[in-house]
Design a protein around this nucleic acid. Structure first.
Length: 271
DNA sequence: ATGGGCACCTGGCTGC
DNA sequence: TGCAGCCAGGTGCCCA
């Protein structure tokens, strides 16, 4: 999926088209996403105005008058704002039609994405309530991270991707942040020195912030709300660069598997 | 509590 | 050309 920068880029793109608009229709072509999409939304969403579009972790929160849509892009999903009568592609699973005539369309080949409806506080939903701090907010800091990491034996890479520790960091940005902080991805979280955790907080913030400014990273499927890819791929130091020279020291980048996911790192720069 | 592994699904690529 | 096998921006759930 899209990690935090891609979701935030999507949020910014769809927000301007959605905010203040009224939904005039919903088309649900394929309800079999991560969880079945409630078919009654087709009747209950029309007539409601979009108050705002927020993001929490990798979830998009589309705030309507009578509740909130919680949308997740999964691994391969994208949400685009399209002109009226745009031809369908395979894997276009749902549309929200707006009173502007435009349409918010969700495409997701792998169907790991989701769309849920909640009334009341979305943060109280089971999927959101145990999430860690936002990496770009003030409550993500070295004291917090050191406390969370204490006596944890899991590898720092997997720890960093645990959404209860900090949200938004996925497989690409975990490798990239650890490279920037000079930390071996295999090091047990509880054994990373405080100074390195300090560097990691900065690295996570920097890499996510820079990626947002570049519109995210496109490897395969991801496109933003206007259909353009993200340009951060050119700025990646290690991800998908196995056997290529480290951009900092020239040593061959290594690829290993942790928790059934590929990890990339420079064995010279990361200890 | 923590850690590890599997499952969900489609498509693109590699190698025989 | 066909096909098996492997891999891919995520994460909930089950088991030890």
């Amino acid at each position: 999926m899209p990690e935090l920068p891609e979701v935030e880029t999507t949020r910014r793109g769809i927000r301007s088209a959605l905010r203040g608009r009224r939904i005039t229709g919903m088309v649900l072509r394929e309800p079999r996403l991560r969880w079945p999409v409630d078919a009654s939304l087709v009747k209950s969403l029309p007539g409601q105005q979009v108050r705002d579009v927020h993001r929490r972790a990798k979830y998009l929160l589309i705030e309507l008058e009578r509740g909130t849509l919680i949308a997740h892009l999964g691994m391969s999903g994208s949400l685009r704002v399209l002109p009226p009568a745009t031809p369908l592609l395979t894997h276009d699973h749902y549309d929200l039609v707006l009173d502007s005539g435009k349409c918010l369309r969700f495409n997701d080949p792998r169907r790991f994405g989701s769309l849920l409806w909640v009334t009341g506080d979305p943060e109280a939903h089971a999927l959101l309530k145990d999430l860690g701090p936002e990496p770009l907010e003030r409550d993500f800091h070295v004291d917090y991270l050191a406390r969370k990491a204490r006596s944890r034996k899991v590898a720092i890479k997997q720890f960093l991707m645990d959404q209860r520790v900090v949200v938004g960091v996925g497989n690409i940005y975990a490798s990239e942040a650890l490279f920037r902080a000079g930390i071996s991805p295999r090091k047990a979280a509880g054994r990373v020195p405080r100074a390195k955790l300090d560097a990691l907080v900065v690295a996570v913030r920097d890499v996510l912030g820079e990626a947002i400014r570049q519109g995210g990273t496109t490897l395969r499927d991801y496109v933003s709300a206007d259909g353009t890819p993200g340009y951060f791929r050119q700025k990646l130091y290690v991800y998908e660069r196995s056997k290529e020279p480290c951009r900092r020291c020239g040593t061959a980048v290594r690829q290993i598997v942790q928790g059934q996911r590929s990890t990339y790192f420079c064995p010279q720069c990361q200890k």
